[in-house]
Design a protein around this nucleic acid. Structure first.
Lengths: 252, 252
DNA sequence: GCTTGACTCTGACGTAGCGGGAGACTCGAA
DNA sequence: TTCGAGTCTCCCGCTACGTCAGAGTCAAGC
């Protein structure tokens, strides 16, 4: 029982071209060929393909996959460990970037233009310390720089990082509260809602109770904010919304 | 005041080739050229470069960046929102893959060969239902398949997913406990440690208290496990280690 | 047996975001 | 003036395929 490229492609959910490519680079050459040159894949070939696609999904390069599958000495778990580290690192990076985007969104919402330095704070690729010095020397004279500096005068590097930390800290305590089963109308939840309001006031703009409840409603109504909070913890949007309202009613 | 490619490259932490490339594709062409053809970047060019690199870090393609920067109509926050969704989705995917890798590592640690179906469980790319049918028809007769089936006889699709869920559920409750400030030697922490032991026993292999404390030590000693747990929550490794030891002392 | 439409074959060029090198100029300091 | 470092433009290479092009092949219906 042998299968044609088309059948195999359909089975495995890849394209024919992909199978051709794997044949070209010697990663997966069908065991048989018909008299007319058609590729004929047998069970063993399909099994190998399964493994290839498995490792491919785990972000291994085709070269690495070949090494893993062809070298019986090669320890698969060692590769898995390496890949695991790689992925967790990537996740961490992406999460930082999400935080950066959230910050940028908040900033643009209130009309704050980020300075170049602030934009770069997220990325650790090039030495920030001697960089900021040069930036100030060279960019200090432009109008755009002065303008954005004026608007974000309160933000220094450290402030920015502190803001990020405060947010994360608040988030941790908030989800912990949810986990503990405490209702959204409890004093503890209201305290954290109040803290949320003050965080906004401190970093972005004067956020009174009216604005705060408006924000809470928007979080629920706008799927992008919804997504943000649901990504942190499912149910968080509703919980936060309820806590904010309870807090506003109690304190306003 | 204008800068040469080399200076700009050094400043921005990119290579000269990258700047050449941006010039080639018209993304960032220096405003001036010297009489001898040298690129001369002025402040405005640097400013644009900053923005380019910013969006590039946020995973926008160079084409999209050009669109954002060149179209004054284009709403930057709309792009940010889209990118935010994209990133959170990517994070979710990566986290699933990390879970899959952890599962594969545990499996290979106890000598369990994953079946092709199990390998594919992680990936939702092609209809799993009608696929498994075909797999069983076609692959059911091979020796390797029978062999791995025998070894993982306990694992069905649903079991596998359940295992994943149980792990995540346990993880959530465990980090919540940490967040609440409960000490690692408390009865609650010990209960969760015991649950951890039983999870291993149920899904992988008989895990007695001796083995369990051995695992706890290994988590602290081996940076890859350390990384795994620290990625979930900083301090979790030590906390889990302590809880497992306390639990073993109390119950053994 | 022949046509027809679906399938397959082997090149070969294109993609994104550069890396890296070749061969020729140019700059700035000694 | 010389020399090493910097810069210029071309151009080929990389990954993991996508996407034709042109030609042969298969299976079914007439």
């Amino acid at each position: 029982m042998a299968y044609t490229v088309g059948k195999v492609a359909e089975l495995a959910g890849v394209t024919v071209r992909t199978l051709h490519h794997y044949d070209e680079i010697g990663l997966l050459s069908p065991s048989e060929r018909s008299s007319t040159g058609y590729r004929r894949y047998v069970d063993a070939d399909l099994e190998r393909l399964q493994q290839i696609l498995y490792y491919r999904e785990l972000q291994f390069s085709l070269e690495e996959i070949a090494a893993i599958l062809d070298d019986p000495q090669s320890d698969a778990t060692a590769h898995l460990r390496r890949q695991h580290e790689l992925l967790t690192g990537r996740i961490k990076r992406l999460q930082e970037m999400v935080t950066a985007i959230e910050f940028a969104m908040e900033a643009s919402k209130v009309g704050v233009n980020l300075t170049p330095e602030e934009r770069f704070e997220v990325f650790g690729d090039f030495n920030p310390d001697d960089y900021t010095e040069e930036v100030e020397q060279r960019w200090g004279g432009t109008d755009a720089y002065r303008e954005s500096t004026r608007r974000t005068a309160r933000y220094t590097k450290d402030d920015w990082l502190r803001n990020k930390q405060e947010n994360e800290d608040w988030g941790r305590r908030f989800t912990a509260l949810m986990d503990s089963g405490t209702p959204a109308e409890s004093p503890e939840a209201m305290d954290l809602a109040e803290e949320h309001r003050q965080l906004i006031s401190r970093w972005f703009y004067e956020c009174n109770y009216e604005i705060h409840t408006g924000l809470a409603d928007m979080y629920l109504a706008d799927e992008r904010f919804m997504a943000t909070y649901e990504a942190i913890k499912p149910g968080m949007t509703q919980y936060l919304h309820d806590a904010i309202h309870a807090n506003a009613v109690a304190r306003a």
